[in-house]
Amino acid sequence: MSEGHHHDGSIAQQVREVEAELEASGIVSAAELEAILDAMRTPADGARVVAHAWVDAAFRERLLGDATAAIEELGYSMHGGVRPQMLVALENTEAVHNVVVCTLCSCYPIALLGPSPPWYKSEAYRSRVVREPRAVLSEFGLELAETVEVRVWDASAETRYLVLPLRPRGTDELAEEHLAALITRNGMIGTASL
């Protein structure tokens, strides 16, 4: 029942009550919570990182060598959370497909992709993708050739992963900002191709 919504009404009320008590006692402030909510509602645009890597070979090399440092060139940081994290970029090729999961909880590159989608947090995804990734990917509509090597990455510690998808064919003429519009969240988790 992890997708259940059966207690929504009463839970919404309980959350408001807990917030009010914590604000009254000064443990958190309303302004602080609103600022965090605003940041979460701002669409994350990690696609810019991928688009830049597609058009700038030197940046791509830096991203694959040390993604934590490379994304700072574009104004992103892995140090904005409660403790510093490391970012690793995983390069999809014609021969290798990468896909990311967190089996123990829901670790995810929020700094680049925003809060994760519900399926990423589901027991179905977390339990199955490490055992049968090809079957899981086919449920996303992604059918990989048998010759493609599949690498699953379980984000069980302080490392966060960003999949660098294959650039679609026929996009050589597109400018960087138009390329970014082609790049989907699922493409950067590894559950879609572009």
Binding site: D8, R16, V28, E32, I36, L37, P117
Partner: peptide, 17 residues
């Protein structure tokens, strides 16, 4: 990411704490 607004509020509360 969120089914309902209270879910976003819980996420923000945990971040702040």
């Amino acid at each position: 990411p969120f089914h309902a607004d209270w879910e976003a509020h819980v996420h923000a509360l945990v971040s702040a704490l």
